[in-house]
């Protein structure tokens, strides 16, 4: 008797699981796809210039390279509305706590691009007393754009790679 009830409950759970799976295929996947598609063409970067790579970001936002074609807007003031940090170069010991603070204030989902050799490994300043050897010790990095400074085309490629990552994001809520 008890066994039969258990079997009945088991089949019910399996049924629920099946329905869940069907719903996931029917609604969840298109919804996730739609949300990710919306996210990837409207990346709002934080205006955080950390060092000299900001010149190349300026050039990339200019009329020749025009990064807006690829769905990244101009740098924006409010952190709450932003979902992308482009760390433009060297992060010093004085700036590092600020970078963490800024990252923590942003709303999920959020992504980080480490631009330039300095933000990846310390670059030319690897033996300086005041420079962090890469930012991945303090915040997680999604895309690395190497160069010193990277050309504007390299930054655009980094953005496109990040969009590819966002397109394949498995969950609706981010990370």
């Amino acid at each position: 008797m008890v066994v039969a009830e258990r079997q009945k409950a088991g089949t019910f759970q399996v049924l629920v699981g099946k329905i869940d799976e069907v719903l996931q295929y029917a609604i969840g996947d298109p919804l996730r796809y739609l949300a990710n598609w919306g996210r990837l063409y409207s990346l709002w970067p934080v205006h955080l210039e950390t060092a000299c790579c900001s010149v190349e970001v300026g050039a990339a936002a200019g009329s020749r390279f025009d990064i807006e074609r690829f769905g990244t807007l101009e740098a924006f003031g409010s952190l709450r509305a932003c979902d992308l940090i482009i760390v433009m170069g060297t992060v010093t010991r004085k700036l590092a706590p600020r970078l963490k603070l800024i990252y923590d204030q942003m709303a999920e989902p959020k992504w980080v691009i480490a631009m330039g050799a300095c933000s990846i490994t310390g670059g030319l300043y690897f033996d300086s007393y005041n420079v962090l050897r890469g930012i991945d010790d303090i915040i997680p990095v999604d895309v690395y754009v190497p160069g010193c400074p990277p050309r504007a085309e390299a930054l655009i490629q980094g953005i496109v790679l990040l969009q590819e990552k966002i397109r394949r994001m498995p969950t609706l809520s981010g990370r």
Binding site: T50, A51, C52, T90, T92, K94, L95, Y125, S128, Y129
Partner: peptide
């Protein structure tokens, strides 16, 4: 916020090696 110690770094690189980091 961007103090990278250029002057100290100049002391442990030779005169030609100093060229790239001094223009940054």
């Amino acid at each position: 916020y961007v103090h990278r110690g250029e002057e100290k770094m100049g002391e442990y690189r030779n005169y030609i090696q100093n060229v790239p980091h001094l223009e940054r």
